[in-house]
């Protein structure tokens, strides 16, 4: 009963399971098998941030996306001291996924609101995954493309609504 190794192993297993559960809920990794999720887990980078610490800043070159494993991350825009929060992300939510495809400057700041643990998934690791396990790599890229396509569709829809509103206003004038 008091075997410390057994308890430690059980604890580690529980932690690994909870990490897999976090990944399972991320749209980019949904429907992947347990074995595939474990392959993904091996290439992720686990980082801890203190409350108020920046994960990245607006304008810096982005290299990949982050998943909130534990804690809360605020996405803000504007200069330090005059920042405007545009969303607050909690456990299982992700941000910065565009940088997986292009090394563009980040369009917003990401700052930890409480002590936070995030999982980083970066372009070099995605490229490595495509090299060594193309089937898994392609399915991740396909999901990523689907998310971006959905977002584009949403933007087009919003754009159409705005255009209609502009037309309406012009007719009323």
């Amino acid at each position: 009963m008091s075997n410390p190794i057994l308890w430690r192993n059980l604890f580690r297993q529980k932690k690994a399971e909870s990490l897999l559960n976090v990944l399972r809920n991320v749209p980019i990794f949904e429907d992947l098998s347990r074995l595939e999720l474990k392959s993904i887990e091996r290439i992720l980078h686990r980082r801890s941030y203190r409350r108020g610490e920046y994960i990245f800043r607006e304008g810096e070159t982005g290299l990949g996306m982050y998943i909130v494993e534990e804690g809360a991350v605020a996405i803000t825009v504007g200069e330090p001291g005059h920042e405007k929060e545009i969303s607050l992300l909690r456990n299982g939510e992700f941000f910065g996924e565009m940088a997986l495809l292009r090394e563009d400057p980040r369009s917003a700041n990401a700052v930890a609101r409480v002590d936070t643990i995030v999982l980083g998934f970066f372009q070099p690791d995605l490229l490595q995954l495509l090299e060594t396990n193309p089937r898994l790599g392609v399915s991740v890229v396909m999901r990523l493309a689907r998310i971006i396509a959905e977002r584009l569709q949403h933007l087009l829809h919003e754009n159409k609504q705005l255009q209609e509103r502009v037309d309406e206003l012009e007719r009323d004038r």
């Binding site: 980082r47 994960i55 070099p124």
Partner: peptide, 10 residues
């Protein structure tokens, strides 16, 4: 350190 992490990786 967190501040240099992405840069180092790249």
């Amino acid at each position: 350190p967190n501040r240099f992490f992405e840069m180092t990786l790249s």
